[in-house]
Design a protein around this nucleic acid. Sequence first.
DNA 1: TCAGCCATAGTGGTCCGACCACATCTGTGG
DNA 2: CCACAGATGTGGTCGGACCACTATGGCTGA
Lengths: 270, 270
Amino acid sequence: MDQSAESAQPVHQGTAPAPQGDAAPAQKGTVTQRAIDQIKTMIGEGRLEPGQRLPTERDLATRLGISRSSMREAIRALTVLGVLEARHGSGIYVTQLEAGDLLETFGVVADLSRGPRLVELLEVRRVLESTATGLAAARITPDQLADVEKHLAAMNATDDPEEILSHDLAFHRAVALAAGNDTMAAILEGLSSRTFRARVWRGYQEEGAFERTRREHARIHRALVARDPEAARAAAAAHVGEVEEWLRGRLEAGQEGEAGGEAGAEEPGA
Amino acid sequence: MDQSAESAQPVHQGTAPAPQGDAAPAQKGTVTQRAIDQIKTMIGEGRLEPGQRLPTERDLATRLGISRSSMREAIRALTVLGVLEARHGSGIYVTQLEAGDLLETFGVVADLSRGPRLVELLEVRRVLESTATGLAAARITPDQLADVEKHLAAMNATDDPEEILSHDLAFHRAVALAAGNDTMAAILEGLSSRTFRARVWRGYQEEGAFERTRREHARIHRALVARDPEAARAAAAAHVGEVEEWLRGRLEAGQEGEAGGEAGAEEPGA
DNA sequence: TCAGCCATAGTGGTCCGACCACATCTGTGG
DNA sequence: CCACAGATGTGGTCGGACCACTATGGCTGA
């Protein structure tokens, strides 16, 4: 009953030389790809709900008429996409399908981009960050504002680049969260992935960026306190735009060139 | 240091007692996940350049000291992320790592989102679309404008919903492209994935949306011709905002409820 | 000589069956 | 009643076999 359900599927494995001629199966793409699409469709149609547990790998494989190996590849694919989550010894589950789950892969994009693409990425971030900050100015709650201030203070209290970067990220994350659009916050999170920021900063910080960053953050904070969306938007745009411009100039100058290694300023750095 | 501490690694399959005494195994996460990270790192560090061909699956597996099965899962994962591309019978290659390659997965997010998340997604799209349209008004070339007009005309010339949707998508794609930021265009592309748009439209189009859409597109076009960024931005924002508002109202009204199936209005459709 | 065909090697795609490591349930003994 | 140990189920890993597709190069025939 399982696979080979049809009269005489080719079925790889040495057997059945029969070409195909049949109609139904509609062989398109690899088996694994088909499995991926099927599961994705099941979720899309609501047959599989967030948090729900899926059948066993072995079961799924049998049901879709493929081997466990292929099924595992499909599962792995959906896992990295943040759609499924495999718990060793327990089972496979559908994630909550929230912004954070699905947009985690966005970080990969940021990490692997370089050269001109970095500027484009920053341009996108500038647009979204300014919007989010503007919204935050109108919606932020006292608690959220306190959280923002905590990271602002922490950032001003240290000179350790590592720590500064951490609180810098946390600062923006808190602001984005206050904007009330989780999806936007998740995208911004990816756009500000640690390695991404670290790469850009490496060169940037050598030009008195710390002080400037602190000043700009303070300006954003003032706008939030004043509940002034326009000021907040402008401050955020300027903040990101500052880095964007620096990077753009740097690219147009010498550092250009697809040369595999240094366009984005990455050094093992000790 | 590492987990279980016992000097002699269990090493699964009884065989191969010699791991590789080399520097720090650093057992973290699954073997496959490690392989994914390693390849990702290789690319990030420039040791693997866009378009370059990778060693054989079998080779890679041996080099990283894992089985081919695990290596295949890793490759599959990076394939769906748009980082690698496997050509049957030929080899595995690094993609060009362009915006389009990496952001293709963005469509999955749009396809799997529902309920409140749909509104958030539209909000993001409104922000980016308006920005892109504004930029396009300032930068669009005659050729690009002609392309935009082509789809505008085609959309006005038919009443087939399917075709209208196609040209609607193409219209916005052309505009986004004219903005000169491929990354932004790629994100918008994902945010306007066919199934996503179709789902929203299903209900929307029943309220005289065609006519309204045509009018709004015409307005965007006029702004582009006039090279008026502000007008273009406003027109685009209003265009997307229209749908956004409609969907928001629809959610707040009855259709709410996490109920697995209809919050986003998806029907197998005739 | 040279175009075109075909055998062949090389590579990804699929499948199988085994075993390991972890989570959970279950039943027993305290 | 609880704690612990075993049994069971599930994902994780492995190795090897074979299929399907590409690409290459040599061979054939004009």
